[in-house]
Computed example of a mutant assay.
Amino acid sequence: MFIEGEDPKLLDSVNKVKELWGGRDFKVEFTKSPKELVRSWKEKGGKVVHLTMYGINISSISRELIEGLDNLLIIVGAEKVEGWYYKEADYNVAIGNQPHSEVAALAIFLDRVYKGEEINVLFEDSKLLVIPQEAGKKVIRVDRR
């Protein structure tokens, strides 16, 4: 994950989540130049997907297109995204054409890409596991020695 600017507290928070819940391959990198990141990504053959309420509705994008996307840089902007990103993106994709949560947009997009299978992922390096149940919470600590 690339984040514009720098936020050491965010990095600490992500590292704590990884420590308990796994996902050692997940990394956060801060960038001072997101436009250069986009340019570099495209130069290396990657595709850029910009999630925006102004894009083509995700339901209009063919399954073949979503499944065929590889080496993706997914841009999730907040309010007032510069027009440059709309022009540089290979795909401007909307989850809906009304204001919505950026986190929700990313979750729905990834759910489509992974066909719902991401909810079944268990990281081998996790220390905690949630045991699904109808009521209450059950979390167990896993000893992976």
Score class of each variant (00 low, 15 high):
3 I>Q: 12
102 E>S: 12
107 A>I: 07
111 D>N: 15
132 P>V: 02
95 I>V: 15
106 L>W: 01
116 G>Y: 09
5 G>M: 05
91 Y>E: 08
111 D>S: 12
107 A>S: 15
4 E>S: 12
131 I>K: 14
54 Y>R: 11
47 K>Q: 07
78 A>C: 00
32 K>D: 09
72 L>D: 00
7 D>N: 15
87 K>Y: 00
88 E>K: 05
140 I>G: 08
21 W>H: 12
119 I>Y: 09
9 K>A: 13
42 K>N: 02
2 F>E: 00
11 L>Y: 09
20 L>F: 13
15 N>S: 14
134 E>I: 09
34 P>C: 04
8 P>D: 09
26 F>C: 07
62 S>C: 03
126 S>T: 13
38 V>S: 03
40 S>N: 12
84 W>N: 03
98 Q>G: 03
41 W>P: 01
40 S>W: 00
57 N>Q: 07
118 E>W: 10
70 D>A: 04
94 A>S: 14
29 E>P: 00
64 E>A: 14
38 V>P: 06
127 K>R: 15
97 N>V: 06
142 V>W: 02
142 V>R: 12
51 L>S: 01
111 D>Q: 10
70 D>S: 13
6 E>V: 11
75 I>R: 00
91 Y>C: 04
24 R>Y: 04
10 L>V: 11
135 A>E: 15
84 W>E: 07
55 G>Q: 01
95 I>S: 02
116 G>M: 07
50 H>K: 03
62 S>T: 07
109 F>A: 07
66 I>K: 04
92 N>W: 00
63 R>E: 15
31 T>K: 07
45 G>P: 06
28 V>I: 15
124 E>K: 15
54 Y>A: 04
61 I>D: 10
81 V>S: 13
19 E>N: 13
24 R>T: 06
25 D>R: 14
12 D>E: 15
51 L>C: 04
